[in-house]
Structures are given as structure tokens and as C-alpha cells.
Nucleic acid binder design. Structure first.
Lengths: 229, 229
DNA sequence: CGGTTGTTTGAGGACGTTCAAGTACTGTGG
DNA sequence: CCACAGTACTTGAACGTCCTCAAACAACCG
């Protein structure tokens, strides 16, 4: 690694807030690539193998739309690293990443990083895990807002309330106010109400706060529930 | 504090991932309130004085709309705690919180919590800080999507690109593709383009990727930039 | 019971999207 | 350095979605 790259790498907030020594040690296990615009760094659903740090250039964290198009969810710039929550949680990426303009990118193996985290005690780790989980909740919400129609959002919300059931009929008792749910889903209460009607052909029957779902599998398909989780 | 409350408190993910001992110690400094629906727990802009933990019931994290109405950004349930990033960063809340249904809520003084965090070493702390920052970025985005019109989103984005300047003229050279920015802001490229036109009365002149802002203060007001940051 | 609050339904309108065409860039090879 | 191709951005028109306003209806609570 070039000295300028190492300097840029150790200067990012994540490492600056830690210690010079730890940053230097992690830099040893890292490698740097210069990648052309359009390069796919990774896809949604993959397991996190590296922490990516942009030394120069910019990249987009991307979600896939129903029409096959990509939508930029977040733009990452020089000094940004991603995606830390996926590494901490050892979970699949919720978004893909594509190079938006020719970039120099440092890649730190996830395992190296996790070993470093492991040396640190429990509470800060817990906080990091917690923040990572919430971060992902918010990502899901943004993706809902940007990538799904209102009816799909409502359908997906119902799927989320249905627990782990993969198929079969489900009965739900909604306890939250519809106006709160509607707000959470980025629509007006009226639209929520109409969207429920719109889901009738998919086997959703709403009577006030009681909702019957004929077959959750059908609704999951309609809402593209699994696509975006 | 009642034993059942203490049990519920120490069982939340944040404390379960830490240690029993730390959780017990923090529970001592905490107190529990039963609050009726509608209670305002705190307002956006306040400094975080407590970590709130829902033992029973549910609360909404809320943003204020331009028309004075509130919009639920996230619904928090029993076992959820909020708002950790605000406490870690010692920053003002980005959202308010209101009781959605009569709830038992444990409140842990922020200072107590920060002292506990301080005992833990540097890297995990750094990670938590980093995650907290990103969490906030996502919150801003969700609020953008839910609470601002497209023209306001564009205006706010320009304000964000203008650095710390509070007033006076600003010249911007946009480097990102407009289609990427538009995606980030939850609109089509055409709408971004038209929204820029729409900002002309506010003193924004766009010539391709060069944008002149007559007076950033005016744009900040129009976009309600400070309201939602 | 009334009164209050929350949900549904309808009508009309604003906003944003899509499609399509035209214009301005950007970069490449001659 | 220019011409040209390819891409990105702008502009227009038509359409669709979602919102607002308003009223009827339902559920809840004192």
C-alpha cells in the first residue's frame, strides 16, 4: 500500500476515533484497488467479506427496483467506509454497491476487522450491535419509501407482522393506530385504508383492526417481502 | 424499581449483549414512569438527558411537518430503547417522542450511561460513534422523504453541500450525476431538474452542473434546512 | 347513551412520474 | 483541434398516484 493511501485510510473517522496503532495494524491486512465507474463492488444479499473505504472517488449504495433498475440509496464519498453494520452483525448486505466515479478503494478483510473488535470489551460492542440493528431498520424503511408502491408497503408491513410464517392463512389484530402505521409507511391514513382494499384481490380482508390473510405466501410474493429484507 | 421492571430492563438486547453486572448497575440509576397516551417524552432539538426503555406499551419517534402536524417516523415497542445515538454523540435529538399507548418507561440518565461507556476501550466506542452518525444520516433521509416536498429536498441538499456558511452567496460545482442525487433524494432526474427551476424565485440559478445561490440564508429558510437537521 | 375520537369513503386537485423529443456535455479518434 | 458518437441533462405533455377536504360511519369512553 502506498504511504498516501495508508495515511488516507488511517485518517477516516472510524480509525481516528480509535488509535493510530490499531489503524496501522488493520492497514497491513488491507489492499487497495483503483476501479472504473460502473464496477459492481458487491450485491445485495452477499455476506460482508470486506470493509470498503473510499480513498478517492465516490460510490453508491444501491437497491434494486421492481423494474430491474437500480436506485441510489446513499452516496458514499472519500473517507467513508461501508458497510460496518453488516460486518458487525455478520449479516448479508441490505444494499449493493457500485462505483459512481473512478475510485481508489481500500478493502479490509472482515475477519481481520472482527478480530480487532473482539479484543474490545462488551458494552461498546453491544452498543455497536444495537446501532447496527437500528441502522438496518432505517435502511429497510428508506427502501420501502423509495422502492415500493403504497400497496406493496402495506402488504410488506402485514407480512412483517405475521412473524416467521412462510405460508398459510394468518389472522392479525392490529393494535397500533392506523394513522401511526400510515405515517411510518409514508402515506396518509386514507391511503392506508384504500391500500388495504386494494389488497383484497391478494386475499387480504380487513374488518376494522382485524385483518385476515388468506395465504401469506401470496402476499409475500405480491409485496416482494423477501426481496427487500 | 419493581423486580419485574428491573428484569424487563436488563433483558433488552443492549444490556443482554453487555453483561448482567453492567445492566444491574445501570438499573440502579434508572427510574420508571407509567405515562398516558399522548404524553410528549421529549422534543426534537433537545439535548438527550435520558435513555428511554419501553417496558410495556409503545411510543412513536416523531418529526414535525411544515403544517404543524406530527408524523410518526418510527414506532418503538416494549424492549426498545431510544435514542442511543443522540446520547453517544451528546447531540440534540433529531426526532421527538410521544407515547402512542399508555406505557411503562424506564429512564436512564444519559450521564450515567456515558460514564459506563467511557470505561470501555476505544475501538468499539469508535464503531458506536460511527454507527450513530450513519444512523442519523439515514434518519435525515427518511425525514426528507416524509416531511419535505421535492423542491424543499433539493434546496436542503444544496444547503448541505454549502458547508457551514450561514449566509451570503454560494457557488457550487456539482460533481455527482444528477440521476444519482435524484435517486438519493427520492425523485426522478426530471423532477430534480424541474425542482431546480422551481428554486429560481429563491435565488438559485442552475447552469448545468454549476449552481449559484444568491443567499444561502434564504434557501435555508425556504428548505427548512435547520428545522430538520 | 351522547360525545369524542378514529376509520372509511367519495370527489377533486396537486404533485410527481413516465414517455418522448430536443439540447448540451464529454470524451475519443482522426 | 475538430468532428462525431454517446451519454447526460432539460423540457414538454399526458397520465397516474397520492393527498386534501369533507362527510358519513364506527368504535370507544365517560
Amino acid at each position: 500500500m502506498k504511504p498516501t493511501d495508508r495515511d488516507a485510510l488511517t485518517a477516516i473517522p472510524l480509525f481516528r476515533d480509535a488509535s493510530r496503532e490499531i489503524a496501522e495494524r488493520l492497514a497491513i491486512g488491507a489492499f487497495v484497488q483503483t476501479l472504473p465507474k460502473g464496477t459492481l463492488l458487491f450485491d445485495q444479499g452477499q455476506d460482508a467479506e470486506f470493509l470498503h473505504v473510499i480513498l478517492e472517488g465516490r460510490c453508491g449504495l444501491i437497491g434494486n427496483r421492481s423494474d430491474g433498475e437500480e436506485c441510489v440509496v446513499e452516496i458514499m464519498h472519500a473517507g467513508d467506509c461501508f458497510i460496518l453494520p453488516a460486518i458487525l452483525l455478520e449479516a448479508p448486505y441490505l444494499m449493493g454497491a457500485r462505483v459512481l466515479e473512478s475510485s481508489r478503494i481500500a478493502m479490509i478483510p472482515a475477519e481481520t476487522l472482527r478480530r480487532a473488535f473482539a479484543k474490545e470489551p462488551q458494552l461498546m460492542r453491544a452498543a455497536a450491535l444495537q446501532l447496527a440493528r437500528y441502522w438496518r431498520v432505517l435502511v429497510r424503511q428508506i427502501k420501502d419509501l423509495k422502492l415500493r408502491s403504497t400497496a406493496e408497503r402495506v402488504g410488506a408491513h402485514l407480512c412483517g407482522l405475521s412473524g416467521d410464517a412462510q405460508s398459510g392463512p394468518i389472522g392479525l389484530d392490529i393494535r397500533d393506530e392506523y394513522r401511526a402505521i400510515a405515517g411510518r409507511l409514508g402515506m396518509s391514513p386514507e391511503t392506508w385504508s384504500r391500500a388495504l382494499k386494494q389488497l383484497e384481490p391478494e386475499g387480504v380482508v380487513a374488518k376494522g383492526k382485524r385483518i385476515q390473510i388468506e395465504d401469506i405466501a401470496r402476499l409475500r410474493t405480491y409485496s416482494r417481502f423477501d426481496d427487500l429484507r
